[in-house]
Write a protein that binds this DNA or RNA. Structure first.
Lengths: 155, 155
DNA sequence: ACCATAATTGAAAATGGTTATCATTTACAA
DNA sequence: TTGTAAATGATAACCATTTTCAATTATGGT
């Protein structure tokens, strides 16, 4: 009863890896495909839960791990103790940005400046590193660390 | 803001924040000051333990948190579940580098390429972001995520 | 130097994100 | 349709980091 007709080309990809395409996996991919931001495992769990309440948090973690190994998604860590996930190489995603992270209050500021200037360097770097280290790059993360304006004066 | 040139004047800095300079804190700073790489809390703990066996892991965590809040050290997360620490703005440190992180086997490759090209952009970006967001930047982290050569072909 | 006292410490317990275990269910090739 | 290996989900385990709390210690005022 494979009623996966009409769904994204994920099915073939899974089978190409000798894995099975299942409902939980489809739901998880669907959530990743329809969001603007990089989500935590728990956020993904809750979103899937809305229309598929039998989903288990364990399955979410396992699926994300698998998708990362397959190169379908990126796994980031912005320093707050929770991993974040997003589809790899997806231009529909949130406007490209990076982070300012406060080492005192741990607040995270997204910034969008210098996207263009950065793009050239990043692309050049990616290309060279891919070749040098035989590494397939799917994404990157740039974090600046320091003290925000509220913490710079107090301890 | 207190200034700290070289090693010792940390005592005055602590007092400037209304904190006390203690033996454990001195030992921890000494370890951070005499290493080439960004260490985990546990690594710092073991190094201090060598010559100060009564040190507690809790104290290491607490001191690192305090030092980060004071802007003396940077706290990084390269995605392996353990925070890393290094003195802020220290040029004696390990040759500047960034990371390639494999989303499958989680191996981390340090690369040193493009340090010069990157430097200009980073400095320019830092300066602008500092002003725009009134944020005191102490360091940065650049990670590329993807699949290493050993994982790119297998699942 | 001596107190007073608030800051600091360290052992132990708690926390929270993530992973391993395992019995049950499910996808899918034959 | 069925056999079987893959996948699921509830639960327990894991592990880095925090919290708790009684004991210790640094420092300013006396």
């Amino acid at each position: 009863m494979p009623r996966f007709a009409g769904l994204p080309p994920w099915g073939g990809m899974f089978r190409g890896y000798g894995r099975r395409i299942t409902v939980p996996r489809q739901k998880i991919l669907s959530v990743l495909n329809s969001t603007d931001k990089h989500l935590t495992a728990e956020e993904i769990y809750f979103k899937v839960y809305q229309e598929y309440p039998t989903i288990g948090l364990t399955t979410v973690y396992r699926t994300l791990e698998l998708l990362a190994k397959m190169g379908v998604i990126n796994k980031f860590d912005i320093g707050d103790g929770k991993a974040r996930f997003e589809l790899a190489g997806d231009d529909k995603k949130e406007k490209h940005h990076h982070h300012l992270i406060c080492n005192s209050c741990h607040r995270i500021i997204d910034y969008h400046e210098f996207a263009d200037e950065e793009k050239d360097l990043i692309e050049k770097t990616e290309k060279a590193l891919s070749k040098t280290y035989d590494f397939k790059i799917h994404g990157h993360l740039i974090n600046f660390y320091g003290l925000c304006k509220y913490c710079a004066m107090k301890v």
